[in-house]
Design a protein around this nucleic acid. Structure first.
Lengths: 221, 221, 221, 221
DNA sequence: TATGAATGAGAATTCATTCAT
DNA sequence: GATGAATGAATTCTCATTCAT
């Protein structure tokens, strides 16, 4: 569903996009060191040489991939309606979105792992990434404050801890699909298991946020 | 703290252990594809050739590394005193242990990521890994049942979800040290931040377990 | 005489042929295990890497060499005029051709020895080689039958035995050039010796074929 | 039948013999370059180091192997009863012996091929090999002369050609077992095929020797 | 813009051999 | 005499990258 059609000759835009797409999957699946330029070119149905023509070299291509992945995440996140008026709902929305986003694009988790394995070389250079994160952090803070004021969320919740927890609950099982599946004899990739995991995560976060709140909402249903 | 002294000549046991130790760090830090045989030999203060003498080839060495890493984790986990009489305490013990274990051996997280990037080739072959996981799963189930019976833990908690959540809270920030640090402007490696993260995780899990319990214990302190 | 000129740059066909030619000689002279990739590249005046570019790896190159050697032999053999009307002459033609062919391309014998040392890994996979042999066997059978009918060739000659004998007489001294030369104090490589050996072989085969024939031709001369 | 039992510890003679035996088979099967020291030690049930202790290095071991192989052949050949009184019978005896000897020890053919692939390095150094060959050549000459005198063998037969032909008929199919078997769809290793080949060879040589003799013996049976 | 040919640097691996006991 | 540990020198092979058209 996410595929980009093989480029028609002499359509530079499409060629570029196709390479980027292939590279995203390749680096996501095998990391930077394990990623193969040749495989990327093949998957993108283009000549290796062309890849160099557009992106210069392997690392630059990798950077372009990360740039574009972050940009996409950023755009979709910005489009979320995180309503301060409904703080618990807003947090749940963010969790459901994050969970779904990484489920839809499993290579993305691999990409972020690759970036960490490279000790964050790319993020360290980026200015937009921390900017955008700061914006989200601020938004979360507002939401938590509003919840606290309404008495529906406990006091003194650290938005950073909340954010990391949301990410952890959304992404950890994707990063560890194979080891967890083998160890625990479950099928993490199945829709059923995913759905159950999501509900567990939502419940976990809500129960924690609500515990000790001044004026907790009645439990759903 | 975990270092093994450079092998004195003619001490095969120590040589072997030293190679394994170096390899663990190398693969943990750079993954399988990024791991360099030469670097491992250097760090282990031994000849590249010796490494082949003991382990045969790169993949076999990698397998030996995983085997030994799992064995170590298994051994320490088995030594835990998870007391059914204190269900909430037992869960907290497991969480604190897991959190601490991965914090102490940061290369371990890298190793597990590498294994997932290789689509679980090793775990898929192992019989001991799933066996040991099944044992822990069963233990968790007992604990949860006891907690339910005592009225201190909510009903129908899935031990698998609990286990994955514990792992996620213990490990996600380690896997994502660099990206999270850069994005959120925090120092994940610092002892302070770690301690705060651990307390957050403990609270999160406990609040969720307790919510809706028949006869909840009074909050601590 | 069989050399292929060093490839001009950017002439892939010639480059490929040059590599194949060098490899033929190298494997013929040193066998598979003793054959050196580096030497092949040198002789072919090209980069080692290029050799991998065209042929993939050492074994694949070796297979390509055998394939081409057999193809060449096959082509020349097929061009022979083995006339059923003159059965004794036809057999002699085949013998003279085989003898000459292996004399002209001494590396070929080495190649076949290498293949036998590898227990016929290549031939076992080929379909064309046995097909072509079957064709030649059938042709020989016709010739022998015709000779029998004309009364110039003895009865019940097995074409397979005849074929192996022809090969043995044509090739054995080439395979054993060095040991025989040293032992018997002769110069097998000299044109004179070769010529004498050929005449001996022709006589041997003819005398045997004729012995006991119904209506033997008068001896030559 | 030719195996030497694994050496009991501290029986140097047996150890040496066992190594030599293993080496003979190894070099016979894989050539010099393809022969593996490690495999030899394994097969001989001894330590690699020991092999060096006894033989010095790979090439020296190879030379020892050839020396011993030639010595054995020489000894058995010398024991033959080549009776001048029955020239045709003597030639047949030599042929049958040679054929049988190489059939019994198939690795021997491989050894001689290896020696030729090394351009006869060993034979070139040996004095005993050509001496012994000269003796056999002289004997053959006597036999042929006697046959000529009796009128049962044609005139002017070159003993060297005869000797090479005998060797070729005895050994060629062994050197080329795999290629011939695959090409011609026969089982060269089977006892039946071998027997047939031997009879063919005997007939071939006799018919040729007899052709044109002054006073040929009546054909057998 | 596009491409097949060519290459240098480096990585894994093999193999015979020596060291130390 | 016997042995396991250790090593240097190739050798095959991989991979990103540049050349020439």
């Amino acid at each position: 569903m996410n595929d980009i059609a093989p480029p028609r000759p002499r359509d530079p835009e499409r060629t570029r996009a196709s390479i980027l797409n292939s590279a995203t999957r390749e680096f996501g699946a095998h990391g930077f060191a394990g990623g193969r330029i040749e495989r990327i070119a093949e998957t993108a149905h283009c000549n290796i040489r062309l890849l160099y023509h557009y992106f210069g070299n392997k690392k630059a291509l990798y950077f372009a991939v990360l740039e574009s992945a972050y940009a996409d995440l950023r755009a979709e996140q910005a489009a979320l309606d995180l309503d301060v008026a409904d703080p618990l709902g807003a947090v749940e929305t963010l969790l459901r979105f994050t969970f779904g986003y990484f489920q839809q694009k499993p290579y993305l988790e691999g990409l972020l792992q690759a970036e960490n394995m490279m000790r964050g070389k790319f993020v360290a250079q980026s200015t937009r990434v921390p900017e955008e994160a700061a914006r989200l952090k601020a938004r979360l803070r507002e939401i938590l404050k509003a919840g606290e004021a309404q008495g529906v969320i406990r006091r003194e919740v650290d938005p950073v801890q909340l954010y990391i927890t949301i990410a952890a609950l959304s992404r950890f099982h994707i990063a560890n699909t194979y080891t967890l599946s083998a160890m625990l004899d479950i099928d993490i990739k199945s829709a059923d298991w995913s759905a159950a995991r999501l509900e567990h995560s939502v419940q976990l976060v809500r129960d924690w946020l609500v515990t000790g709140a001044a004026n907790p909402a009645p439990p759903p249903r």
